[in-house]
Design a protein around this nucleic acid. Sequence first.
DNA 1: GTCTATATGTAGATAGAC
DNA 2: GTCTATCTACATATAGAC
Lengths: 223, 223
Amino acid sequence: MTDRREDGTSKDGRVARGEITRERVLDAAERCFAERGFDAISIRQIAREADVTLGVVGFHGGTKQELFLTVLKRRVETLNALRISRLSALKATERLTLETLIDAYVTPYLEIASRGDPQWRAYAQLVARIVSDERYYLEAGPLYDRVAAVYLDEMERLCPDAGRDQLAALLSLTVASMVSIVASGIRIAGLAQSEVPDSPLAYRDLLLDFCVGGVLRALEPKC
Amino acid sequence: MTDRREDGTSKDGRVARGEITRERVLDAAERCFAERGFDAISIRQIAREADVTLGVVGFHGGTKQELFLTVLKRRVETLNALRISRLSALKATERLTLETLIDAYVTPYLEIASRGDPQWRAYAQLVARIVSDERYYLEAGPLYDRVAAVYLDEMERLCPDAGRDQLAALLSLTVASMVSIVASGIRIAGLAQSEVPDSPLAYRDLLLDFCVGGVLRALEPKC
DNA sequence: GTCTATATGTAGATAGAC
DNA sequence: GTCTATCTACATATAGAC
């Protein structure tokens, strides 16, 4: 933003302008963190990406750590809500099985990762980084694990003879598989010598088969 | 980078002091990169960890990028050889199935990740970072994909009706699941409110069931 | 082979002008 | 609310003394 706005405009304009700038900073940070990771990105690069000056990022985002968490918190509730609402719908229709449960957890993520909105896609990529990196996970994990724990409770109800640690490991494997679809499309394409599909939704059925098949086989004697 | 090693193995066949220093630098870099990632670690920290001065790291490791690749290359052939030899053994005894194939790919990694040697454990953690991060993968991926492609060929032979892209995606999901066991033990323990097992081998059977079950279900109509 | 010293750049953070 | 200017610290990399 090189053009410098005159001060003394209407009062309602002032508030809105700050909010818009703030959004632009968060959007830029989201893209940068997603693409290169927390440590590889400087606040300066985020400022450049947002087309604001360095000071503006500090003003709206605080420290780099705070900015990172703010970026996550802005989105996490939406994803959590999608998962909770799908679960409620399942319970209402009484078609709750391990299969539909996994579908309810995985599909919202795949859908946001496949939306047209590049910010949501960036966010999905960012999530993929978080789960696989202990350092991010320590501060960001709790944002997600509240809902994961709810799903885990349902798994326990469906399969009471399995240990909770075993079910937790299977849910974690499911999550790892899920995010890998978004994060390692390049590897798949490289191995198959094919094209990278423009949407992770292309792998949806395959991913669900993989996760459901995996969970069922691991629980086979007990379920 | 200066070409090192004018070779000082003169005295009764003992390894040169430089070689020992070099190993210590690579070991320290391996631990640091594994624990915190390429971007979060400075060469200074590696030097401190190795108990040498900054210049020594530069002398033995070259630039940071070069050091990173050197760390990987030192180990990768061992892992690749284990996978190839397991595959050969399978083909010799003619017990090659999707199940045993996946076992042959996954087990060597789990075993090195579970060895007493902390350096091998660190390396396993480092591998987990590489597969899930596009930036590392671009330069390190080819080191691994040669062998992955061999396994993929075997999958194709076992299941000729599936597309190569589908098989590649399933192999990639298997790899993602495999490394997640090493990388996200904390998450599993947090969800289950249990202890982190001291060896990823504790999850071996569960992981194999998950991967095999996943691959079989995804290929079900075709195999 | 090892280490000191340093060149050169960039990092995160903020005080204060506008 | 925005941006300039700057502080302090640390980054990578290397030249040259020992």
